[in-house]
Design a protein around this nucleic acid. Structure first.
Lengths: 226, 226, 226, 226
DNA sequence: TATGAATGAGTGTTCATTCAT
DNA sequence: CATGAATGAACACTCATTCAT
């Protein structure tokens, strides 16, 4: 996952050249530790000296890799975004139509959240007002990509006559993505986990796949030409 | 809004008795400043000494009102929760059925977010993993209230035969509330505002009421007996 | 014990007139709490607001009784000194000779320490360099009284031919009093208790009266005309 | 005196590794200042930031050397203990018998107190009830060492028939050490200095060596087989 | 006179960042 | 380059004392 080469051509990288020259092991370790810390404590409360020590990297090296704590944070986030982007791209390519895409998106939201809970906690942090100054520094906004996917699938669906003719595609895209985002967070932070439990009850919470297929079915009803 | 009497009977208050004894002006000023700071900087990065100074209150007085920075934060949040709870209660009472309730909920989400953007930014913060230890201290979880409203309205709707008979009410409640939460946040933090703009485009973004009525219509389709 | 009238004529009192006008109960409570706090935490670490609260006295009243934290402390200490002085006076009057006096002094050291452990801990504090500026404010130095008693008894003993003729009475008084002081502290602070245990072992520590009579016997040997 | 190497093998050190890596000059300066401050103001009233500033060390460095103010304090104390222990060990080795040992102990008490008055003031502080929690952290209690020396010398003396056959050695050791402790403090804090003056008068106070030899002679009388 | 809310300088400690080695 | 000791502003919180009521 954390393969630095993937971002090497990225024009706005938040790490210094030096970072590409360290061993992949070192980079991996740093990432792991940084994600642990940032996800658990949030950006502000995270101590970059702690990260360095736990990763077995000197604080001096740290600052030769990243210009600041903020840049370390953004590097982590960017990397996670790239991963998510790839997942989305694959998903879009494999999806037959908008219904299939949403089904896959819902599934992926859950799986991605469960596979990378800490990364997701960090994203949640990033949506926070206090970190908004950072999120603007991230050019490859997830939403830009997602929006495009929805746009394409709705265009195709309209052509094929799969969806209601009176559909406001943008509003609907916004709605569908919102559902996915909330679903994703519902597996990420304690807060949203607790919230989901309250809504679903223990029974349904433990049979999440059924819940998910219901959600998907409702969405189908909502969108599909009757 | 920030009338301390409203919480006086609240069993788990996060402020000390002394706070009830200061002038309402002083309390109001403190609220305002605290919300400003916490919403702009997040919990961790907010300086309680700054709040005190900007509110024209000595730091000593500050600590005679609240046992800790955390308690000041929770007092702010609790107060906002109480307000939202009241809004929800009124809404529930005035709503005719589940469709009406959702329509109102969507509207209220937007209006509340626009009226108290800073408070909403603070809530967003609270859903963050790093503040999860605080959110558990807030017993009167918004979600518990919301869940109940949905449960009641769906029970009523089933009785009246308004909704599809195969409806998984809990999954649906979760879905509807998720939509409202995301909608609310979409007017709160810069991040979500930006995201909404990307999805809706400038045109629709500026005609938000139409978007909202579309969303509501889709939900109707999804739930109502065809 | 803590009868304020006893000090009323004292020329250098550390309390204000107001203090004599409060109820004896109030005064007693204040004493008790102040001794608790000062003995447990030491002068510096003791919080005068805490004392006030625990004694059920307003901090305002506190400062109407005593000009400062230091004066409260000195009032406590002075009072204890007066008590000790009285004990010493009685002891001196009842003692037949220097041997009897020392025997009683040793006994009284133990009993006084066990009866008023907290007061003794406070005295120990007062011998500390950092509190020396306070101890100079206390006119009725214990030692001045003690010195005089020893002087009288040794004069009497010389006259009666009870003691060795080559005795350096001042050095001996210093020695005897030092023994009493250390013995007294040995029942006061944890530190000296522990130390005594190490020297005596569990067995003797639990049969302290025998140890005490041995000590007394040794001193007799040292002083008495052979 | 303040050679850090002396404690390097000490298993319970209260300083961090980093402290061993600074220059000896820096360490020395820090020690000097810390002893000055702690001895003059007592533990509680001493400000660690003051110490840092006066020693020309940043507060950050301070906390990279010691985990807390308490640990700085204990490091100082421990170091002094080690020194005293060494003095005691040498003394014990050079002493011919219990009489010689006590004579030397008395002398050393005075000399050590006069050479390191501030260190001794700090020890006095440590015997205070409020610092008892700290004294328990110091495992190598002076008294344990001292007790052993007395035990050995009394055993030897009994074998050689130098002392009274009815001697309670433990009580006697306690007595002798108590005398030394008080004698030592008599040269350390203002309080005890003043007290000694009161007992001895100016004349004898200024001829302390004679007083000391008298004390020693009395002890001899007390212990030796007549 | 009694109250206790208010004050604000001060405390122990943290941490992003620098820089000599 | 890498290291990690060093920096010092900043922080959450305390407490002796004041003063309006």
């Amino acid at each position: 996952m954390f393969d630095i080469d993937a971002t090497e051509n990225n024009e706005n990288r938040f790490y210094k050249d030096t970072f590409t020259k360290t061993s992949a092991d070192r980079r991996k370790k740093l990432w792991d530790v940084a994600i642990d810390e940032f996800s658990a404590k949030g950006y502000s409360a995270t101590n970059i000296n702690d990260i360095a020590r736990k990763a077995g990297v000197s604080i001096g090296a740290m600052y030769s890799y990243f210009a600041s704590k903020e840049d370390l944070f953004l590097t982590i986030v960017e990397q996670g975004y790239l991963l998510l982007e790839m997942i989305l791209k694959n998903m879009a390519e494999e999806s037959e139509d908008i219904f299939d895409f949403f089904r896959r998106a819902l599934l992926a939201s859950r799986e991605y959240a469960l596979k990378y809970p800490k990364l997701n906690q960090i994203y949640l942090d990033l949506t926070t007002q206090s970190l908004s100054s950072m999120s603007v520094r991230l050019s490859n906004k997830m939403e830009a990509v997602t929006t495009q996917h929805y746009r394409n699938f709705f265009a195709q669906a309209k052509e094929k006559g799969l969806v209601r003719s009176d559909l406001d595609e943008r509003a609907m895209s916004f709605l569908l993505d919102s559902i996915c985002v909330m679903y994703q967070f519902s597996f990420s932070s304690e807060y949203y986990k607790e919230r989901m439990k309250l809504f679903l009850g223990d029974e349904e919470y433990n049979d999440i796949e059924t819940v998910e297929s219901h959600l998907q079915a409702y969405i189908h009803t909502m969108i599909a030409k009757s």
